[in-house]
Design a binder for these strands. Structure first.
Length: 504
DNA sequence: TCTGGGGTCCTAGGACCC
DNA sequence: TCTGGGGTCCTAGGACCC
């Protein structure tokens, strides 16, 4: 049977979503000027996460280093990402799409497929797609492209035609006229390397690719890829719109260091931090991992990795760290400058027979308590908005949050609260999404309030500062220093704990 | 002043067994 | 003891996506 598939793609998603928030607080529409979502402009390692259409006209592309983008366009407006807000926008976007068909597959935070077959009620697919597009725009304030096609591949290709705020069709019968003239690179799963290989053999358009013998193609790009790409180039894709989200097969955490790591102590601290983060995430999701993989990326971008299987599935930080440490000597000589390191957990399961061994291994008691404490603190601080929080801490739900347009006013509000109630203390604690935050705690350390400046950490005032700004600036330096001291302290505490637990 | 972070899947080669 | 080949499993590295 002929299917009708929609692919809905938010135009410059992160940028549009940030724009809405900025407009709501009285700012200008950054979609209309050259602008990007990126990290701290002072950090040479920041890259472009999203760009506006005017920014694209300066030759700025996603994943470019921010420094090179600023060279192309010195007046570029740079805003930090706000993942919590993006998740909220995404949820609303998906909810509207779901009103059009229950057969929905969320493909990423800003894309989904709808199987409209049987849900059109005789209506013209393009009219329905246009209504969906306009519906999202009027209710949520941002634009999308809708691709309409005979299968997922064609719908996705169609949504990528001209942007923004457009509906395009790519039916099977239109493949030859609309898709074959395009360069091979435009085909899904043809990246830089595959493009190079294909062009080397004179295959430069999707039409060329469609006519190449799959056997010949296999010797150029590999067996599996040749079958897929040959089908794709001919507009063939039988894959269904998957309604059920499948569980993650692996969890990974990677960090690029501010300065390349060249000594064991610093590397061991990094392994500890990575282990803490990734182990916390699997505990939140209630899974355990059997395999651990460690990778390091050197200054020259060469990557080395090693993996191993643990004795049994675990979600314990100390165990994961122990295995990660055994992998390290195989991939690092202890002196080569390392720019990035990461840990991936795989072979995941839900069974927790690990508990049975608790009593045989007295160390586990220490480790389990430490992890519980870590999880409790992480939840209270609302650490990572991107993690799918299975259970939210009750405390967090009750804490009032006050938003401020600037850091100075947030600092002032926090100070006044302490003045009114001397039982309270406040501390500056930026959230991971770039939102600045002053938290208020009572004498027991319980968080009772938050004064936040959404997405403000990158906007550190420089140059001639007023006294208020000076103080704010100092509070930032302070918080950075405190955070790094805290991380060092936590590492030392954990090392003590391991010594105690292992009796060494 | 180059180049983030979180995933999935595939390939090629080695180990091991028959 | 040598040689070849097929099948399976494991893993390091690479390509791609958003």
């Amino acid at each position: 049977m002929d299917r009708v598939i929609f692919h809905i793609d938010v135009n410059s998603a992160f940028l549009s979503w940030s724009a809405l928030k900025i407009i709501a607080s009285g700012g200008a529409d950054i979609r209309e000027v050259p602008s990007v979502v990126s990290g701290d402009p002072e950090d040479r390692r920041s890259i472009i996460t999203a760009k506006s259409i005017p920014a694209k006209k300066f030759g700025i592309n996603t994943a470019d280093p921010l420094s090179s983008a600023l060279r192309k366009c010195p007046s570029l407006v740079v805003v930090p990402p706000d993942f919590e807000w993006y998740s909220e926008c995404s949820r609303k976007f998906i909810a509207i799409c779901r009103e059009y068909s229950p057969v929905l597959q969320q493909f990423s935070i800003d894309e989904c497929f709808l199987d409209m077959t049987g849900f059109l009620g005789g209506a013209d697919p393009v009219q329905v797609a246009t209504r969906l597009k306009d519906d999202i725009h009027s209710k949520l304030g941002f634009t999308v492209n809708v691709g309409v096609g005979s299968n997922k591949l064609l719908a996705k290709m169609a949504s990528d035609f001209t942007k923004p705020d457009k509906v395009h069709t790519l039916w099977s019968r239109e493949v030859e006229s609309k898709m074959w003239p395009l360069p091979v690179r435009d085909l899904l799963y043809v990246g830089k390397k595959t493009e190079e290989k294909l062009v080397h053999y004179g295959i430069s358009t999707i039409g060329h690719l469609a006519k190449v013998n799959p056997g010949t193609l296999g010797s150029i790009i590999g067996h599996k890829a040749s079958l897929t790409l040959h089908d794709y180039a001919n507009g063939v894709d039988d894959s269904p719109v998957e309604v059920l989200t499948q569980e993650a097969k692996s969890y990974s955490v990677e960090r690029t260091f501010k300065n390349d790591v060249t000594d064991y102590k610093a590397m061991d601290r990094a392994l500890f931090n990575l282990s803490c983060t990734v182990a916390h995430r699997i505990r939140v999701d209630g899974v355990r991992a059997l395999s651990v993989s460690l990778f390091v990326k050197a200054k020259d971008f060469s990557v080395k990795s090693r993996q191993c299987q643990m004795e049994r599935p675990t979600d314990t930080t100390a165990i994961i760290l122990r295995y990660a440490r055994t992998l390290l000597p195989d991939i690092w000589d202890g002196s080569t400058p390392i720019r990035q390191a990461g840990i991936t957990l795989g072979k995941l399961s839900h069974d927790d027979f690990d508990q049975l061994f608790l009593f045989e291994d007295p160390q586990m008691e220490y480790y389990r308590k430490w992890d519980e404490e870590y999880d409790r603190k992480a939840m209270a601080e609302g650490a990572d908005p991107r993690s799918k929080m299975r259970k939210k801490s009750r405390q967090e739900d009750d804490v009032p949050v006050t938003e401020h347009p600037s850091g100075e006013s947030a600092l002032k509000a926090a100070k006044e609260a302490v003045k009114k109630n001397p039982d309270l203390t406040f501390e500056r604690k930026p959230l991971q999404d770039g939102t600045d935050c002053f938290i208020l705690q009572d004498h027991s350390g319980k968080i009772v309030g938050r004064h936040v400046v959404p997405g403000s950490v990158a906007k550190v005032p420089k140059g001639n500062l007023s006294p208020e700004e000076e103080e704010y600036r100092r509070s930032i330096d302070d918080a950075v220093k405190k955070a790094s001291e805290k991380s060092a302290r936590r590492y030392e505490q954990f090392m003590e704990l391991m010594k105690k637990a292992t009796g060494k």
